[in-house]
Computed example of a mutant assay.
Amino acid sequence: MRRWQCVLVSLPLLLLAACVPPQAVRVKGDAGLFKAQLAREQLLAQTRHWSLQGRLGISNGKDGGSGSFSWSQNGEHYEFTLRGPAISGMNFRLTGGPEGAVLEGVEHGPLRGPDAEALMRKALGWEVPLRDLRAWVLGMRADSGPAELSFGENHLPSLLQQDGWAVDYRQWDETRQPPLPTKVFAAMPPYKVKLSIESWQFQ
């Protein structure tokens, strides 16, 4: 094999190695850390109108991709838009609230149903924990069941384990009060969801 071919073969491996983050420092929470986290969650729970933009990557162990996304939450109503071939090569828009959900941009759509997660499963075959993700993306425990928390050196959540998912908080915007996550990786084998949040807006 020629030298330049060896370089081309080796380059993706080197890039992947360069992207692997150092092992995070994680500690079990003490009374002070959990008290501060509870105060964060109580404050953020009162924030019912927010939006974010960023990049999303998703994989089911065999197929996957990435794209840009936006998410708006207005009380119990939401709008989630994905642009790019992140899931099945489609762009789609998911909207809904207590009355049900609508998934547009998919084959034979739009699809309607009482549950957004069930719509995603039916239309795309993907398991995405949208209900819990609404809390996780804010750095909060969801109200769906018991959760285990570990904290980082910044005294903010580093790893959240809930409903079979491991939510890894890789980066926070600590200039905000309260601080907000900017890199969130959630995994429940074989599924992986990676969010890189570029901007937050609150009303």
Results as ranks from 00 to 15, higher is better:
residue 138 L to F: 04
residue 160 L to Y: 03
residue 60 N to Q: 13
residue 79 E to Q: 11
residue 77 H to Y: 08
residue 43 L to S: 15
residue 109 G to D: 05
residue 93 R to D: 14
residue 40 R to E: 08
residue 80 F to V: 06
residue 162 Q to N: 07
residue 157 P to M: 05
residue 81 T to W: 07
residue 38 L to Q: 15
residue 128 V to N: 03
residue 28 K to S: 11
residue 164 G to K: 09
residue 70 S to K: 07
residue 42 Q to S: 12
residue 38 L to T: 13
residue 126 W to G: 00
residue 114 P to V: 15
residue 70 S to A: 13
residue 32 G to T: 12
residue 84 G to N: 03
residue 30 D to E: 11
residue 62 K to P: 03
residue 121 R to Q: 15
residue 97 G to K: 02
residue 101 A to I: 02
residue 157 P to E: 01
residue 151 F to C: 04
residue 161 Q to R: 14
residue 64 G to L: 05
residue 45 A to T: 12
residue 126 W to V: 06
residue 29 G to R: 02
residue 144 S to D: 08
residue 39 A to P: 06
residue 62 K to I: 11
residue 68 S to Q: 13
residue 96 G to Q: 02
residue 34 F to M: 14
residue 40 R to K: 14
residue 61 G to S: 10
residue 84 G to D: 10
residue 139 G to F: 00
residue 151 F to L: 08
residue 46 Q to W: 08
residue 108 H to C: 09
residue 89 G to N: 11
residue 89 G to T: 09
residue 56 L to I: 14
residue 113 G to A: 07
residue 124 L to W: 04
residue 45 A to W: 10
residue 163 D to W: 06
residue 57 G to V: 11
residue 75 G to P: 06
residue 38 L to N: 12
residue 58 I to S: 10
residue 54 G to W: 06
residue 88 S to V: 08
residue 82 L to Y: 01
residue 123 A to Y: 01
residue 59 S to V: 07
residue 86 A to S: 06
residue 139 G to A: 02
residue 123 A to L: 06
residue 164 G to D: 11
residue 97 G to N: 10
residue 163 D to Y: 05
residue 65 G to V: 09
residue 56 L to Y: 01
residue 131 R to G: 03
residue 116 A to Q: 07
residue 135 A to Q: 02
residue 94 L to T: 00
residue 72 S to Q: 13
residue 86 A to M: 03
